[in-house]
């Protein structure tokens, strides 16, 4: 009964000694270094988080000087660090939203610019078409001649080639006999027939037309 008690009391005690002794044995040699390292890591992490937060906030506060590409690069850099910080994560979400919004705005702007450019070009073409129509619709010869003189100013020379597409089927493009702008304008005056539209225009450095392609309506 006594022996039994002895065993009962000695095993936990041994166990505790062993356990405590083991710990003491294994860590006892570099206990201070470890702590230093832990502290350094914790500090580094804290620095990184702080830096990330500062950067993310800077992105969020940017008034438009930082290009979207740069924002995206910095964000990806932060994301790759996997900081797993609540504040950082929250800011990442906000920055992502900002970047998405800016990208959309940029896309929209590009689209608008393109449309504007197209509209501008169309307007230029339309402008040429209008001149041709005015020459064709002139009531008198002097009126037509004045319009021709005006229209000629858009062209780099009276010999600017005018090509008229009569049919377009795949790669087969059929043209009428090439003419020059001077002849064409006089043709419009005489026949009062403008049944084409401007198809393409080439200009020189001075913005004067050097070649013109028309297509049959």
């Amino acid at each position: 009964m006594k022996t039994q008690f002895y065993f009962k009391s000695i095993i936990p005690r041994l166990f505790i000694i062993l356990l405590v002794g083991g710990i003491a044995f294994s860590t006892g040699g570099c206990k201070s270094k470890k702590k230093l390292a832990q502290e350094a890591a914790a500090k580094e992490y804290a620095d990184r988080v702080a830096k990330a937060i500062a950067e993310l906030e800077a992105i969020l506060n940017d008034d438009g000087t930082m290009p979207v590409v740069e924002m995206e690069r910095r964000l990806n850099d932060i994301k790759s660090q996997n900081l797993n910080d609540t504040r950082v994560n929250e800011l990442i979400k906000q920055v992502e939203a900002k970047i998405a919004a800016q990208k959309e705005a940029l896309r929209q702007k590009q689209l608008d610019d393109q449309k504007k450019q197209e509209a501008a070009e169309e307007q230029t073409y339309h402008y040429i078409d209008e001149y041709f129509k005015q020459v064709a619709n002139s009531k008198t010869v002097p009126e037509a001649n004045a319009k021709i003189a005006e229209a000629m100013k858009m062209f780099s020379s009276p010999d600017v080639p005018v090509l008229i597409i009569i049919s377009k089927a795949g790669s087969d493009v059929d043209y009428d006999k090439p003419t020059t702008i001077e002849k064409y304008l006089n043709y419009l005056k005489d026949t009062k027939n403008y049944n084409n539209s401007v198809y393409s225009v080439k200009m020189d450095g001075y913005g004067q037309i050097v070649s013109l392609e028309l297509i049959k309506n």
Partner: peptide, 16 residues
């Protein structure tokens, strides 16, 4: 059917 060079581009046209 005829062809001519205009500004370095070969143009196939119908001479009527």
């Amino acid at each position: 059917r005829k062809e001519t060079q205009i500004a370095g581009k070969l143009i196939g046209f119908w001479d009527v």
